[in-house]
């Protein structure tokens, strides 16, 4: 695995992603998702909302790096809030 040049930060990042996917899989098998309409302009399932929130979180981080010099963790908190809002009310 040395050739993949792992770092603790990226390892933690991918572990979180994998754990989220496994968690979502278990959640789906326990109580299957029902497509619904929230504030997003389309009908979404739980998986859709996760995808949208993760993609949005990536763009929030990129925007943060591109347009401000402030600390990145503030952007991360905004991304986390966005993730929770989309998952709950999206």
């Amino acid at each position: 695995m040395t050739w993949m040049a792992w770092t603790p930060v990226t390892a933690a990042f991918f572990s979180c992603i994998i754990l989220t996917l496994i968690g979502m899989g278990i959640w789906q098998s326990v109580s299957p998702t029902v497509p619904r309409r929230g504030f997003l302009p389309l009908e979404t399932t739980r998986g859709d909302r996760l995808f949208i929130s993760l993609l949005g979180a990536a763009y929030i981080h990129l925007g943060w790096l591109a347009f401000t010099d402030a600390a990145l963790w503030i952007g991360s908190i905004i991304a986390l809030v966005w993730l929770l809002v989309v998952m709950r009310w999206g």
């Binding site: 040395t2 050739w3 993949m4 040049a5 770092t7 930060v9 990226t10 990042f13 991918f14 790096l65």
Partner: peptide, 23 residues
């Protein structure tokens, strides 16, 4: 893709010599 993510946060000179540089 995971490898690319790993590369993107490091300064890599060769497989043994690499430094974490964050964003």
């Amino acid at each position: 893709l995971m490898t690319v993510v790993n590369y993107s946060v490091q300064d890599i000179f060769d497989p043994q010599t690499r430094f974490f540089v964050g964003t």
